[in-house]
Structures are given as C-alpha cells and as structure tokens.
Nucleic acid binder design. Structure first.
Lengths: 141, 141
DNA sequence: TATTGTTATACTCTATAACTATA
DNA sequence: TATAGTTATAGAGTATAACAATA
C-alpha cells in the first residue's frame, strides 16, 4: 500500500518540522529572557506564578523535582521577585508569591515573549487563527 | 483601540500554547530516545548525520560549540555508531560518518520519532495537512 | 596568520537520597 | 507513618580558553 508509505513520509516531514519549530521557540524564549537578565528556569518560574503557589504545586507545574524548586525559590528571593509565605492551614507548606516587582517583571516578560515570538513575527492573522485549534489539539489529554 | 488589545491577548494565548507544545515535543523525543538507550544529544547528532559531515559543520547544524562536537564524536565512536574519517582535500578536517549500524539506528530512530510524535497521535489527516504549511512559515528565514 | 579539532576546566540545569518539621 | 520543604551531592549537557596541527 502506497498510502502507508505516504503517511510515513508525511509524518517524517511533520515531526522534523515540529522539532525545528521547537528549537526555534526555545531559542526565542532564551533570547527574550536574557534581555531581562534572568536565567531561563527562573523566568519559567516567574511566568508560572500568576497565582501564589505552594512549592510542591510549582514543581508539578514545571515538571521538576521539588528539591529544584527550593533552588528556584532561593534565586527568586535573592532577586526580590518572590517570597515564601506561610500557608495558614498547613504549616509545612510554603506558598510562593510574586512581589510587586515580580508581578511587574512577569507582565513585561509575558508581553515580550508574546511580542517577540516567531508566531507573531511570521504568521498573519489568518494563519494564527488556523494555528490555535491545532496547537490545542496537540495538548489534549 | 480594542483591536490592539485583542491581538495582544491572542498572542499571549498562542505563545503560551506554542511553549507547551514545545515542552511536549521535547518530552516525546526524550522518551523515544530513551527507549533506544541513547542520550538526547547523541540521538540528535545521529539524526543530523544523514550525510557524512565535517565536525565543524555539525556544530553549526546543532548550534553548539565545536568542542562539544568532540565529545559527541567520542561518544558516537564508543557506541560504534559513527567514525571520524579523513577529508582528502584538507587534513585539518575530520568528517563524521555513520557506520552501518549507525545508519540503521538512524532509520529506526527517525521512524520511531515520527510514529510516536504527538502530531501523529493527536491530529487527523486534515489537521496534519493544515499544520504543515504553518510550521514551514514559522521556520522561514 | 587563520582555521580545524582537542583538551582541560568550569558553569548551568536538574535529580537522588537523606534529613527536619509538621501532619 | 506520610508529606512539605531543605541540604548535600552528583550527573548530564554545554561553553570558554588555551593548544596543536594544518592551511
């Protein structure tokens, strides 16, 4: 069946394209983040802290080990971007909360990432409208 | 202008979606590659060696420092996947060339990456056809 | 003198295991 | 006994700088 061959060839092309887009997306992100003088992991944490978040939950969101969140929290506090605050209902839990400056950085960072993204620079309105549902489907669980 | 606001909101959504797709694509790749018992950087090198390639050129393709290619080449040789061969026209240059086994691994790896990709598992034929030109536009230079 | 690859070294990102305080 | 966070340590991935061989 040539059908199977054709589908395999298509999937080669697509997976290779998607991989290259992935590389470019990461490079874009790294470049923006560097202009903010932030390491990439710290910037990821800032963007994930729209709401005050228990450290454990942040680890889940970042898909990393909780011990790594300790290092991130230390770094965020050193930079004055976030603070560990107490959870009134469970004294084991520390809730990570952006400071005023952290929230401001987060807003500017999110805007810069969006503005500088390849998606914004390379796709017109129609393309972007077409892309969104496709990306959503790629994230379906 | 509300138009500007709407476009910014769209670009927030899209850049966040694209970032999450990026994370997923990398996780997919890492999972496939682990099933081949290869470190991710070695697998990337194997996939980049469709043609015998001078080490310097491979560094460019992988966007890494040439000294890192030395380590990759050592690892590839240890695994019997590639060999350094001489360039007849310039004795400074070493051309990295997949062995028979390396080429076989490369074929199986490319097929597994394509087959296991989120794109293949989540998108139907129509979606894939729509996605391809969008990804190509994202890679335009 | 400029370029290719190598070596030695150091830095960033991240996980594992053992620990402490609390539940 | 189980869970949240911490500490110490180790490992993967990668760059920088100095170097040897060749151009």
């Amino acid at each position: 069946m040539e059908d199977r061959e054709a589908r395999l060839a298509e999937s080669y092309r697509l997976s290779s394209l998607l991989w290259r887009v992935t590389q470019r997306t990461m490079a874009d992100f790294a470049a923006v983040v560097e202009s903010f003088d932030l390491p990439v992991p710290v910037a990821r944490a800032v963007l994930s802290l729209g709401e005050p978040t228990p450290m454990r939950e942040l680890a889940g969101r970042l898909r990393c080990d909780p011990s790594w969140v300790t290092s991130l929290a230390d770094d965020l506090e050193r930079r004055g971007l976030a603070e560990r605050t107490a959870d009134p209902s469970d004294r084991r839990v520390k809730v990570l909360r952006l400071t005023g400056e952290g929230a401001a950085v987060r807003d500017r960072l999110a805007e810069a990432v969006a503005r500088e993204s390849t998606v914004m620079r390379r796709l017109d309105g129609g393309d972007r409208t077409a892309l969104e549902p496709l990306l959503e489907r790629l994230l379906d669980d």
